[in-house]
Amino acid sequence: MAKVFEKPHALSDVSMHYCPGCTHGIIHRLVAEVIDELGIEGRTIGVAPVGCSVFAYNYFECDMQEAAHGRAPAVATGIKRAVKDSIVFTYQGDGDLAAIGTAETVHAAARGENITIIFVNNAIYGMTGGQMAPTSLVGQVTQTTPYGRDTSTQGYPIRVCEMLSQVEGAAYLERVAVNNIPNIRKAKKAIKKAFQNQIDGKGFSLIEVLSICPTNWGMSPQESMKWLEENMMPVYPLGVYKDKEQGEA
């Protein structure tokens, strides 16, 4: 018998701090599998955010930097411009990327910065205990929207892929999910393409991954997968939002 599935080399052999059933672990592994398959670990530099995945620098075997909240795309820009043959990715949550770091995200895209962004959208701030995120759904109950997200004070969720699809510098934008096996396979394919784009010098790629937060959503992991499908997917439809190669999606 041959091993058909094992931990990728680029994923560190440590126990991650994530809650049981948190899909950050799946997404980390997909990124590491892609790094392995493309043979780029030695020249890859990752940038960790602030949020639940703040410790991502402990989970990848490549060189890592830890950025201030929201600033990962700026940090990645600095690295990429300093080390020309490097492969640079950021791994960011919704608060980091779409609230405090919106400017850095949009402008990295506008510059066509040749980096890869893995954007994990679970519609909540996890690390601080479940507050409203820029991507929280209308009516969603969180610690800071105890009566549900009220549009009169809290406005509407930001659809990052749709927004960035209007930015000329962005090369590739796709929204995927990790709620079941076929979607996890598709997510990996998208992440691989986003890294391949960088290798090929095609510019800014961002993969938005719909993810779950069982702890702060207050559900089991299985229920959370269902909630993602029933509530998040209608607001955040999966698909390719921009692919410069294919023309506008």
Partner: peptide
């Protein structure tokens, strides 16, 4: 594939 913690080979 769905295990978040790389428990399974």
């Amino acid at each position: 594939i769905i295990c978040p913690d790389c428990v399974i080979e």
